[in-house]
Design a protein around this nucleic acid. Sequence first.
DNA 1: TGTACATCAGTGAACGCGCGTTCACTGATGTAC
DNA 2: TGTACATCAGTGAACGCGCGTTCACTGATGTAC
Lengths: 183, 183
Amino acid sequence: MTTSRRGGLRDVLLATAARMMEEGEVELSLRSIARAAGVSAMAPYRHFSDKESLLTAVADNGFAMLHDRLARADRAAVGREALVEQGMAYVAFAAANPALFRLMFGRSRECEMPASGAAYGVLANRVAALAPEERRGAAILACWATVHGLATLSIDGRFQGPGNDDDANRAALNLLIDGLVVR
Amino acid sequence: MTTSRRGGLRDVLLATAARMMEEGEVELSLRSIARAAGVSAMAPYRHFSDKESLLTAVADNGFAMLHDRLARADRAAVGREALVEQGMAYVAFAAANPALFRLMFGRSRECEMPASGAAYGVLANRVAALAPEERRGAAILACWATVHGLATLSIDGRFQGPGNDDDANRAALNLLIDGLVVR
DNA sequence: TGTACATCAGTGAACGCGCGTTCACTGATGTAC
DNA sequence: TGTACATCAGTGAACGCGCGTTCACTGATGTAC
């Protein structure tokens, strides 16, 4: 690491942490992230006040990625199919980044993560456009819970099926949407 | 800890670990459990080969508790109401034991936890009794995912509502069941 | 019944480790006059 | 333009800590003869 990149280390650290998680690292330590970034153990303190705030930034980045995937998926289809695609994208994101996904949802309350609300909004808007007004609230909650549940169960390995989970997930989402649009 | 209770320490350790989690302890160490049980750091090794196997036993106990709650809830109502009650019991269990719940679902794959399958069975049976045969698989997955998602989102604090979540959860479950029984 | 011995469930000191964080520092870059 | 100084982004040694686990042990309980 040369010292010439002014302030670039911040982004390098976030990217390194994300990569480590992608590669299966579960418990990230400040030191291990710095090590992987090729930098001294103290260097991160130039950019983050402590370990917590670094991990919170990583999580917020994750929510931005999730938001992007959901928005893309929503654009790729129309009507209820757009909602199904969002659900599939949500599960795919979790499956591709299990450790990051767990980090994101494990540090919810006290931490400020603006991108989290944006991701939620994309899903909620699509559901709101599909559900009759009087059950809008329940519909949003049910959809959010279902896709999150599918994602969580999937990365925790609770589906012992032979692997073609996509079809099963799609069928489950469609079943949910049946109850959502029917009045 | 007197040495007179023959083999009793095993259960004491499991109960102590469960209690610590109930009291908000998040990361249990072997030493902290032993300490809380009033026993030397080495004593647990008389009953568990290592930390992992102790925690796995704690998780399995948790699944037995969850199974019990689901079975009770199922008996407390009939038809689709029994399924709603199971869902509410599932969420209530997670809310009352967040750390334990996370532990249970965080060590899924490689570990042997027989009680896990039993809990799943109670929910699956009820769904199977309600759903038409051709969508049984999708229905079970959708329900399992939804109640699990509601529980997970709830303990991760993603509902910022004023607290009366029970009604919202109930409405979401009912909406799901609408899609489940309608053909 | 008494005695010798094995087993069993615990103790307590010690190990090596990685962690988050502190501290004082270094040397390059930017700025005022 | 040159010089003095401030700032900034990094280093590297050191701290104290709790951890999982090892080792050798102790003393009570159970068992065979």
